[in-house]
Write a protein that binds this DNA or RNA. Sequence first.
DNA 1: ACTAAACTTGCTTGCCGCTAACAAGTTTAT
DNA 2: ATAAACTTGTTAGCGGCAAGCAAGTTTAGT
Lengths: 211, 211
Amino acid sequence: MAATAAIEVSTDRRRTQAERSALAEQRMTEAAIELLNERGIAGATLKAIGEKAGYSRGLATHHFGSKAGLFRKVLKSVSVIWVDQLNRHVGEKTGLEALCTGLTAHYRFVRGYPRHVFAMQVLWLGSLDPGSDFKPNVAEFLRGQRKVAARWVEEGQAGGSIRGDIEPARLAEQYLGSIIGMLNQWQMSPGLSLKRMYQEYESYLRILVKP
Amino acid sequence: MAATAAIEVSTDRRRTQAERSALAEQRMTEAAIELLNERGIAGATLKAIGEKAGYSRGLATHHFGSKAGLFRKVLKSVSVIWVDQLNRHVGEKTGLEALCTGLTAHYRFVRGYPRHVFAMQVLWLGSLDPGSDFKPNVAEFLRGQRKVAARWVEEGQAGGSIRGDIEPARLAEQYLGSIIGMLNQWQMSPGLSLKRMYQEYESYLRILVKP
DNA sequence: ACTAAACTTGCTTGCCGCTAACAAGTTTAT
DNA sequence: ATAAACTTGTTAGCGGCAAGCAAGTTTAGT
C-alpha cells in the first residue's frame, strides 16, 4: 500500500505481479501469431514461442496449461478484434446493407490484420483435426456469426430490403459459407483477388435477395 | 517370370514383389485414412499407421519417404475417387445442369465416402499450415476444379442456360467457394444439414444465372 | 512508520515418454 | 546371388510435468 505511488509503467522497474503476468500472456500470444504465420502449428513450438516472447521454453505451458490452451487464447484474442471491427463498421445497419457492410468489414479485417487472420485461419482449419482441443470454440463462434447474419436478414425482411420468402437461417449459412470459401481459396491460391471475389459475391447477393 | 502362373491373391502365399509393394501401400493408405478420422494429423503416427496396416513402424517412411509423402498419397488417392465420381455423374452435361449435378455428385461423394472425405478435408485444411509440405498439391487441385466449373459456365452461356454477362472464372470461384464453405461449416457444426445447404445453394444458383 | 519474516505467484530447468527420420540390418522374391 | 521389401537400432527434438528458484505481496513485531 505504502510504496505504490512510485509505479511507472513506462520504466521497466517495479511491475505489479498482475502486470507481469498480463504482459507475459500478451507477448506470448503475439509471438504465437507470428510463429503460426512463419512455421505453422507444428512448427510453432512452445519453446520457440516462449523464447520469441523473451521468456523460457516452459512459460507458455505454465500460463496456458497446454499448447491447445495457448491456441485457444490466440483464437479468442483475434475473434475479439474481429467482432469489434464488425460492430464498428456495421453499427446500427440492418438488412442487405448490413450484409454488404459485413462483407467489406471482413475484407478490411483481412487486409488490416493479415497475420492475425492467417493465424486464426490456420488454427480454425486445424480445429477440424480430431486431435485438436479447440473445435468447440470454433463451432460456437461460427454459430454466433450465423445468428448475427440471420438477424440482419430478418430485419431486412421487415424493412423491405430482402425478399420475404427467404429463410434467414438458410441465407446466413450461405453467407458465412461463401465468406469461408472465398477466404479459403484465396489463402490456398495466392493468385486470386480477394477483393474481386467479395465484390462479385456482393453483386450476386443483391440479385438474390431483391424483393 | 516362370512361377507367376500360380499367383493366388486370396491365399497369402507367393506374392510378386510388385504386388507386395502395392498391397502395402494400399493398406497403409487406408490405415492412414482411418487414423486421420480417429486421431487427426498429429495422432496418426507413422508407427500407428504401419502397425494398423499389419507392418512395422518403419515401412511407411520407407515407402513414402516422409509423413508428408504418405499424406500426399492419401490426398491423391481420394481426389482420384472424387474426380471419377464427378465424371460418372456429370458425364456430358453442360451449363447449369452440370453445375447442379456437380453439386449433388459432391453430396453423394460426401455421403458415400465419409471417411475419405473427412481425411481429405483434414489434410486439405492442414495444408494451409506453412509447415505442411503439400500445399501446392491442394492449390493445383482447386485450380483444376475451378477450371472445370468455368468450362461448364462457358458452355452454359453458349447453350443458353446461363446468362451471358457472367464471367465464367468468377462464378467458378463462387461455386467452389460455396461448396468449400458449406462442407466446412457442416464438418465444424454437426447440427447443420448438408443436404439442405446444398439444395438451398442450388436454388440460389438457379436464380442467379437465369438469363 | 519501518523492517523482516511468511507467504504467494511468476518463471526456469531437468526429466520422461513419445515422435519422425535415417541407417544399418534381416527376410523374401527373382 | 542379387535386389527388393521389410524390420530394427539410433538420434534429435517435441509436449508436458514436477521440482526448484526468484520476485512480488502481505503480515507481524518493534
